[in-house]
Design a protein around this nucleic acid. Structure first.
Lengths: 203, 203
DNA sequence: TGTACATCAGTGAACGCGCGTTCACTGATGTAC
DNA sequence: TGTACATCAGTGAACGCGCGTTCACTGATGTAC
């Protein structure tokens, strides 16, 4: 009666893993904590999923999906410049609000020699495409190949600033100023892109 | 006779740890491998050093010093723009040539609640200052505080592109194109900075 | 020059723990007749 | 409706291993007399 119909164990395990990572970070993820949280026995993990690694990838997969959703509204801004700026800002905000889950995206390493499954790789392509659209509009002079490259560079730049800021240590930007600095960075790059088109210089 | 005067054990241990990290990465660093390589017993580590963590910090300290040396020539370029570009390029080259040692700089986490010792923190400040000089020359309109912030943003941007490229997975720039892309990135930022001064806009 | 003693870097077997994974078992559910 | 049997998700104690750290011991070196 009060016994809600529980979701399928596999889902509960992914939920639990997600919550654990959100609380303790990827390094703090332990099989025992996950099963305790999901309310099942330790061994049950291996019925639902092949591996702890798979569990992490399922969580990362969700995070990527949520990230995608968080970036979606940005694409509706009314100029390529505005879209690019909005994407970068949304990225920073998402990272700030989901720090550990977001970090897990980049921290997770598969054991030596194991390849990332295609379904996970494909999810990244979606992100690339989303950034690529405004950039292509901004630089109609560049071939698709060059755009794809620039997307990666732009993404890397924004990512790096956010990443170091969230790590806190070393040489990061203070978190309170992160959005502002990301905006300054992307703003400069976007102006540079426009100037390149106007000037006719390929680079 | 053929017995060369061996350096002090502590030094040999740091040498060995450095070599191990260079070969296998920070995650692959094991006390037993280090001592085997240094030619001493396992327990000897704890006479020379308080901890494996300290050993890592000693290695990182060296890496930072070598990074500093690798960046030094860049400062002799003849305009602030050129210096900034040369610094970024030297950074990318250093990372490419010292991938695992460079990565260790950012991967190493001290156990919860342990603070980074000052001697290590100070070494980072040196790097910041080195990038700050040309940037301050480029933006004489900005107060020192703002320059310090921009240095971190610029550093983060370059770092991010390099970092993702070296990771290889996900959304990185291909390594062969890394230097070119870093140059494009920094070039655009430097142009943006100059334009900001000319235009009188603070941002 | 010799003897007794203290020091301490260096040794390596053993400790201890964290933790992913396995596996023999249980019990609920479904199927055949 | 009842009985026998198969299946299989779920259980949790036990396994096994990697690995940082400790600690009782050794033996070389230095000091005092």
């Amino acid at each position: 009666m009060a016994e809600d119909k529980k979701p399928d164990l596999r889902t509960r395990l992914i939920d639990a893993a997600e919550a654990e990572i959100a609380e303790k970070g990827l390094m703090g993820l332990k099989a025992r904590d996950v099963t305790a949280r999901a309310g099942c026995a330790l061994g049950a993990i291996y019925n639902a999923v092949s591996d702890l690694d798979e569990l992490v990838m399922r969580v990362n997969s969700r995070t990527l999906e949520r990230l995608g959703a968080a970036l979606a509204p940005a694409s509706r801004a009314d100029s390529p410049e505005a879209v690019t700026l909005a994407l970068a800002d949304a990225y920073a905000v998402f990272a700030l609000q989901n720090r550990r889950l977001w970090s897990a995206l980049f921290e997770h390493r598969l054991p030596e020699g194991v390849e990332m499954p295609d379904w996970h790789r494909a999810e990244h392509e979606v992100l690339i495409a989303r950034i690529g659209a405004p950039l292509a509009a901004l630089r109609p002079d560049l071939p698709e190949e060059a755009i794809r490259l620039r997307v990666r560079t732009l993404f890397g730049a924004v990512h790096g600033v956010v990443h170091l800021a969230l790590q806190g240590r070393l040489v990061g930007v203070p978190e309170a100023l992160l959005r502002q600095e990301v905006a300054a960075l992307v703003g400069a790059l976007v102006i540079g892109a426009r100037a390149a088109v106007a000037g006719g210089g390929g680079r």
